[in-house]
Amino acid sequence: MYTGRDEVHIRALEHLDEGKDVPDCLNGAALYHCGPIMKQDDDGKWSVVAAGPTTSARMNALEPRFIREFKIRAIIGKGGMSKEVAEAMKEVGCVYLAATGGVAVSYAEGLSKVTGCDWLDLGMPEALWHFQTSSLGPLVVAIDSEGNSLYETVRQKVAENLSKQ
């Protein structure tokens, strides 16, 4: 699993446009919208302290192209994404898994190993961290690979409930 938020999206797409290298790991990746707290020991080895999801909607504008270019298979985040993103997900066969916001210690436990990092110059939250995962959760399939969105269902229900008030 690889983390990527605002700056990873911006740089990866810029690099594609400019014909520069983009880390291979993004191809077919499970992308975690997350800016973790990482700790480096005296030997330079990184470990994860806290790693809950960030707000996915910030990436709405760049995500459709990102998904198509890198054939992203799963996105883990919070708050859901736009219809345009769901369209791209449908084309590529990608699911959106909603992680519980703020549950950073539990998700950090599910990221069992730090296997690498690219673009650390973007700063700790924005870097592209590589993780091995085991029992990461809870995760709710909130947008499936056919474009069905739990957020959309809830939104309609909310509008209905509010109209009764």
Binding site: G35, I37, G52, T100, V103, V105, S106
Partner: peptide, 28 residues
């Protein structure tokens, strides 16, 4: 039930953060 699972995950995380003296959320 989905909501209950979210609340459960939050409360479990709160307990772990206090016990391990770690920030409960990565966005400090």
């Amino acid at each position: 039930p989905t909501a209950a699972s979210q609340l459960g995950a939050i409360m479990e995380n709160v307990r772990k953060a206090e016990l391990l003296a770690k920030p409960m959320c990565q966005d400090t």
